[in-house]
């Protein structure tokens, strides 16, 4: 059955060359810096946006992440893969940012996100060859799932995003989050359950504003 699909393609690409890339970074090779960015800037950005629900915050977090990566590459011991190390930094930075922003900004964050999103949408609309109607339908669907995702507990969201958007294995997620495999399983399960509930609610009430009680683990 299609439901048993394993994501083999996402695993292992480039991991074998980690130590070469790391050596090259340490020696200050220009191509190494470029390669690192080429490989990670998009996934790190995507992850940050999904963790924070905010592109402007993600913008800052991504820079912070790569600054940390460049500065700390000599302390990277190679006990985990480069990939999990970088995502771990991303998750931590997003965590810090979320705490900082929730203390300093509050609600305006949401509005900011809205306008950014719309702008991006218009950009994609311009060069996709599809009918505006199809795009709008997809867009509505995406908007529903995005806001559902935004409303679930951040701890569960992290696990689900790493699994279904960043496409990491359970083992990698355990390393990134620094938790056991069992905890990863349970967080993904709870995250998906919460998402399912949010989506079901979203169908009933068009503009659900209720927040899900946030009890982790």
């Amino acid at each position: 059955m299609a439901t048993l699909r394993l994501d083999l393609n996402a695993e292992g690409c480039g991991d074998g060359n980690d130590h070469l890339l790391i050596e090259a970074l340490r020696s200050g090779s220009e191509t190494a810096y470029e390669q690192l960015l080429a490989r990670f800037q998009q996934p790190v950005y995507t992850l940050a946006v999904r963790l924070l629900n905010n592109q402007a915050e993600a913008y800052d977090v991504v820079q912070e992440v790569f600054l940390k990566v460049f500065r700390n590459i000599e302390y990277f011991r190679g006990e985990s893969s480069l990939k999990t190390w970088i995502y771990r930094i991303t998750v931590n930075e997003a965590h810090n940012a979320r705490r900082w922003f929730s203390r300093h900004r509050g609600r305006e964050v949401e509005l900011d996100f809205e306008t950014q999103e719309n702008r991006n949408w218009r950009e994609t609309l311009a060069d996709s060859g599809r009918s505006p109607f199809d795009v709008a339908l997809d867009r509505e669907q995406a908007g529903i799932i995005e806001s559902a995702l935004a409303r679930i507990n951040p701890v569960f969201r992290e696990a689900v995003v790493l699994r279904d958007i960043t496409d990491l294995s359970y083992e990698d997620i355990a390393v990134v989050l620094g938790v056991s495999l069992g905890t990863v399983k349970s967080r993904i399960l709870r995250g998906r359950e919460a998402l399912r509930e949010q989506l079901a609610e979203g169908l009933q009430a068009k503009h659900p504003l209720r927040l899900v009680p946030s009890t982790a683990e």
Partner: peptide
């Protein structure tokens, strides 16, 4: 979720 477009 998997089909969700990656924000560029």
């Amino acid at each position: 979720l998997r089909r969700l477009e990656r924000p560029l």
